[in-house]
């Protein structure tokens, strides 16, 4: 097994472990958000192993640096306490939810087993900022403009939703 493969399994195990810790931690939402950070950083490491260097940098900056910080701000702003969620949702819903997830996963993994190609060698510059930038601003320039519009709309929407009423 090559060094890259060992690193892949290491970070994959880390990602799954901390995703589970986010899912199962019912008492502390802040710890859940921090577990999510570990998952995101592990995924960024896996992106590097898969030659997607620019995406890995963006993953750390946007997810670990911005989105999870936003989650933490809101959790601390709302000042949630442990006992807010004390009496659990009906047991049936929990069991059914877990079963749906496990069943879908098992079916997918069974279907997946054969038939995927070996990873080939990559061309020079694959996944670097230069190649990704050229792809973004030539083939996908319309998509970039649409994303800019979407982000503007999201900023306005978030401000309208979260601001206090001015007249009260």
């Amino acid at each position: 097994m090559s060094f890259a493969a060992i690193l892949f399994y290491l970070f994959g195990a880390l990602a799954v472990l901390f995703a589970l810790s986010m899912l199962l931690n019912v008492h502390n939402t802040v710890a859940g958000a921090l577990s999510l950070v570990v998952t995101m950083v592990s995924l960024a490491a896996i992106y590097v192993l898969l030659e997607a260097h620019f995406v890995a940098a963006i993953q750390i900056m946007v997810y670990a640096g911005a989105i999870v910080v936003l989650f933490l701000f809101v959790v601390m702003l709302l000042n949630l306490r442990d006992d807010d969620f004390a009496p659990g949702r009906q047991r049936l819903v929990r069991v059914a939810g877990a079963l749906v997830g496990v069943f879908a996963l098992a079916q997918f993994l069974r279907w997946l087993a054969p038939g995927l190609p070996e990873l080939p060698a990559v061309p020079a510059g694959f996944g670097g900022h230069r190649a990704v930038g050229i792809a973004l601003y030539t083939d996908y320039v319309l998509l970039v403009e649409l994303i800019a519009l979407l982000l503007l709309a999201a900023i306005v929407g978030a401000l309208v939703l979260a601001k206090r009423k001015l007249d009260s």
Partner: peptide, 17 residues
């Protein structure tokens, strides 16, 4: 990871989670 996310949406009650 996707399955863990699905179970989280179906099972947890905290909107933030």
């Amino acid at each position: 990871l996707f399955a863990i996310g699905v179970v989280g949406v179906l099972v947890r009650r905290n909107v933030i989670v």
